[in-house]
């Protein structure tokens, strides 16, 4: 065998073995259920291959794996929406899009999709635009009870549990607590009754442990409450010092003296009433979640 041919054969064999090794690694990665990315990557791959049945199956698997970020979850619901529409299951497609838009109201689908694929998405948008509520959370500082109150709005029932990390400003360690999701959940925070503010990181998860709402990060926690409650209302600053141009002519006017006298007398009497028995009439109404 000539040397040149031998070198070529060795090179081919090496290349072939490398390819096999690469495929093995890839297949292990894709097949491993423990990898958080695997099922979603698999769903993406199936979508690229226009295999909608497999896209739907793998996207569902990715959803059930849990541990997904909001961004990943939005993509999962988008893939579920598209693949369900492709299978003729318009209701499932719409439901997936409703959930996608619950997590991210600004989310879009590919504008190149055919009307059959886009229609459930438009219906999902209509569903949300017709509602006054949305998937949302508000955190309030209940100083009287030394607690944070998490108020959840979850119109489509996606939330399963609420995880809260909290700490007093100036401290490093977060205290962590998890509670079942509810429209109002209380988290006691040690030392909160005497604190001006509380720092927190909040995560609301679905039944599989995917994040559907997040507020703050450990590096940049959100803060609720104020260190100083004393807000002085600004004075009007309208002293009326300079009357008009015209120098001494104003002083000569009888109007000036009459008005000045009346104002001074009125102010004196007014001050007397204010300090003696002034009272205020209250008009009490209600607001929701201001």
């Amino acid at each position: 065998m000539p040397m040149k041919t031998l070198h070529a054969a060795i090179a081919r064999a090496l290349f072939a073995s490398l390819r096999v090794a690469a495929l093995c690694v890839a297949s292990i990665c894709v097949a491993s259920p423990a990898s958080a990315q695997s099922a979603l990557a698999d769903a993406e791959s199936a979508y690229q291959d226009i295999d909608f049945e497999r896209t739907r199956e793998r996207a569902n698997a990715a959803l059930r794996e849990g541990g997904k970020s909001k961004r990943q979850l939005v993509r999962i619901y988008e893939l579920l929406g598209i693949s369900a529409a492709a299978s003729g299951d318009a209701q499932a497609s719409r439901d997936a899009y409703v959930r996608m838009l619950a997590i991210d109201p600004e989310a879009q689908v590919d504008s190149d999709l055919s009307p059959r694929f886009r229609e459930p998405f438009m219906e999902a948008r209509g569903y949300w635009s017709s509602r006054s509520d949305q998937l949302d959370v508000e955190v309030r500082f209940d100083r009287a009870r030394g607690a944070l109150r998490v108020l959840l709005s979850d119109p489509v029932g996606m939330a399963n549990q609420t995880k809260l990390m909290s700490r007093l400003p100036g401290t490093i360690e977060f205290a962590e607590a998890t509670r079942p999701a509810n429209d109002s959940v209380r988290f006691d925070v040690s030392g909160a009754a005497d604190a001006g503010a509380i720092e927190y990181v909040l995560r609301v998860e679905d039944e599989y442990g995917n994040t559907i709402i997040e507020r703050g990060t450990e590096e940049e926690p959100n803060r609720v409450g104020q260190l100083s409650g004393a807000v002085s209302s600004g004075s009007g600053g309208n002293n009326g010092g300079g009357e008009e141009d015209g120098g001494g002519s104003v002083l000569k006017s009888p109007w000036f003296w009459v008005v000045t006298g009346v104002v001074l007398a009125g102010a004196g009497v007014g001050a007397y009433f204010l300090t003696q028995d002034a009272s205020t009439d209250l008009s009490i109404t209600t607001t929701i979640g201001q």
């Binding site: 508000e138 309030r140 109150r149 108020l151 709005s153 429209d183 109002s184 009459v258 008005v259 006298g261 009346v262 104002v263 007398a265 009125g266 102010a267 009497v269 007014g270 001050a271 007397y272 009433f273 204010l274 002034a278 009272s279 205020t280 009439d281 209250l282 008009s283 009490i284 109404t285 209600t286 607001t287 929701i288 979640g289 201001q290």
Partner: peptide, 28 residues
């Protein structure tokens, strides 16, 4: 002058203040 005097007196007596009871959400 008399009108001004009465107005000043009245403004010293009555105050009105709106109070809002803020419920956390519709459920509460």
């Amino acid at each position: 002058a008399l009108t001004s005097f009465i107005l000043v007196l009245l403004s010293g007596c009555a105050q009105e203040l709106g109070v809002e009871l803020d419920f956390p959400n519709v459920a509460t």
